[in-house]
Design a protein around this nucleic acid. Structure first.
Lengths: 338, 338
DNA sequence: TCTGCTAGTGTTACCGCTAACAGCAGCGCG
DNA sequence: CGCGCTGCTGTTAGCGGTAACACTAGCAGA
């Protein structure tokens, strides 16, 4: 409730601390960064002065002078879907000790927005960039390629990375799930998922899924798409629609766990025999959903590990470009026959 | 998969663009920032050069020279609990048009970590800071107070803000919920919530809740705390424990919707009559949960609006310090008798 | 005694950009 | 015809730090 500027004069600089402690700015700088030799007493004097003044260093100036920026740009499509927060946890954990700090930018699955977020981030000259996905506009790829810093594209490895990639094969994940479903004896299989034209990972999963169906001489008997809204609720609606339209389906493959959970709740409400009469599966392995009446079949996307590995690459900063594939595990849960 | 540094020589600067387009650096700078008069043809030449070179301005240098930083620090306790992503959405939405960019820091509800996150952020000399909560270490408060920028403390207004505050009264929210519960005729009321010693908002809600109970001559008949893990699952466990211990409870007040949802699912599994035999309520109004078999009674925390208002204060940057109270609405759902 | 070294400190020259001001045409006007 | 103006462009001097080097005293070894 006070005014925002209680400045005695201006904002503090190294000079203020140097005057207060009677040494040069350079020595203050050395003390504050723990670099170079400074005698014990001097160090104490300086720290004391900095503390009582309440000096906070100016990283803008420091970064410009040293040509070193302690930021790592992280560009992700969304924060609200449970998957990226976990990736962030992995990233922060590893970056913690390194003096590097993640800065997130959110694109909402819009390529234009992604381009401008990347531009903005690069203009801060970060030490590295972590970006979800392998598909970016030509301009984005060009900017990133030219930036001269390590670039790690995460989540997906089905494609050509600019530099590094850490992720899983969503095509393979789709295929694996399909194989498990077929092996369990389901034959009339439907897909329910996001409409989003730019969720390439979901798209690849579906491709892999359909490939595997084709190999078994099957095709999807129906499909249903949605866009916004509460995922749980959408899952119910979509499932109701689809079963209304195609009552004899015996398996529902959802593009993510949230809508899958909604579908599961609906099926249970209807008293359908799950997984006997009908099976369900999602994708992501969101821990949040442990605690549903029944465990949804799903596939872990290795989110934490992806975050960790990506951060480690940036922190190492010398690694030559490479593709790191992680392998998700299928959790059959209680919604697929065994 | 290529090497990270395809530099023809070094990273581009204004000088490169100025040479490529045959004008001074200053003119290039003017064009790139749309500031001051530049003739049409010159502007074209410059833009063309910048585009073909792939120049990305260096905001570090720009910020240092202009003493203006387009960043807004946002300090929040967690990203994984559904409530802050929505606040972020509100913030980003408002900041979008202003040229300001949010930078988030996560504290995991640890005061020490909060202090260092604040220090880190201030060292980038942001144009403003948005921080969750009103309770901070003395050092944190001092740093923020001295920073000379607008500080907005969000979520809570039960206390003394450093500068601005936007939020709801959690004490009042707790009281209101208690009153509604009592009015509905429940008498044996228990509380289930987070253990976290630093979730001051949850604590205040509980205080308000107990105050209102006391006014009606009631006290909590039991309570149960948890710390980590999947909230839905924890909700189940806690509820099972509590009802095992105190079977005659007739209302369960949860400190958040997720554990409330877990509890609700457990009650339904057990075939308990909700809300007849037992009522339940949570807090937050997370949209995510629409779609549960039954709508949990809850209270919206005005998250989106809090984010918007906070960002607006920073963007306006001249507003004198003030406390803005928002008023959550109680959504009785289907888990409280009417 | 002189040299060479080291630990501790100061000096200088930027880092890449922008504020502020200094030109300098070309023009209308008294 | 000289004045002031407007429209455009360039020049200069930092912003607040840090790298790189210069300096000084003190001391070991030749």
């Amino acid at each position: 409730m006070t005014k925002p500027t209680p400045d005695p004069r201006h904002t503090l600089t190294l000079r203020d601390v140097s005057e207060a402690s009677g040494v040069s700015e350079m020595t203050v700088s050395r003390v504050l960064r723990n670099r170079g030799d400074v005698s014990g007493p001097t160090r104490e004097k300086v720290l004391e002065a900095a503390r009582t003044l309440g000096y906070v260093p100016n990283k803008i100036a420091g970064a410009l002078a040293s040509q070193r920026v302690s930021l790592v740009g992280v560009v992700i499509p969304s924060l609200s879907n449970m998957v990226f927060p976990e990736v962030m946890t992995g990233i922060s954990g590893v970056l913690e000790g390194t003096g590097l700090q993640p800065v997130v930018g959110v694109t909402n699955y819009l390529p234009d927005r992604e381009e401008s977020v990347i531009y903005e981030m690069l203009s801060w000259r970060p030490s590295g960039m972590i970006i979800a996905g392998l598909e970016h506009s030509a301009a984005s790829r060009a900017m990133l390629g030219r930036a001269g810093i390590p670039i790690v594209e995460i989540m997906d490895i089905d494609g050509d990375p600019i530099n590094h990639a850490v992720g899983i094969s969503h095509r393979r994940a789709g295929r694996q799930m399909a194989e498990a479903i077929i092996a369990a004896g389901y034959r009339k299989i439907a897909f329910l998922g996001t409409q989003m034209p730019n969720d390439f990972r979901a798209k690849k999963r579906l491709e892999g899924f359909e490939d595997a169906l084709a190999k078994a001489g099957l095709t999807l008997v129906d499909r249903e798409y949605y866009s916004g809204g509460s995922a749980l609720l959408k899952g119910r609606e979509m499932t109701a629609n689809l079963l209304g339209r195609t009552p004899d389906v015996d398996f529902l493959y959802y593009s993510n766990d949230m809508i899958g959970a909604g579908g599961l709740l609906w099926c249970l409400d209807q008293g359908l025999d799950v997984p006997g009469r009908i099976g369900l599966a999602g994708f992501n392995g969101v821990e949040l959903l442990d605690g549903l009446p029944r465990m949804l079949a799903t596939m872990d996307a290795c989110r934490l590990e992806i975050g960790r590995k990506a951060a480690a690459i940036i922190a190492a900063k010398d690694t030559p470009g490479e593709k790191i594939e992680l392998f998700p595990t299928l959790a059959p849960g209680d919604t697929i026959r065994r």
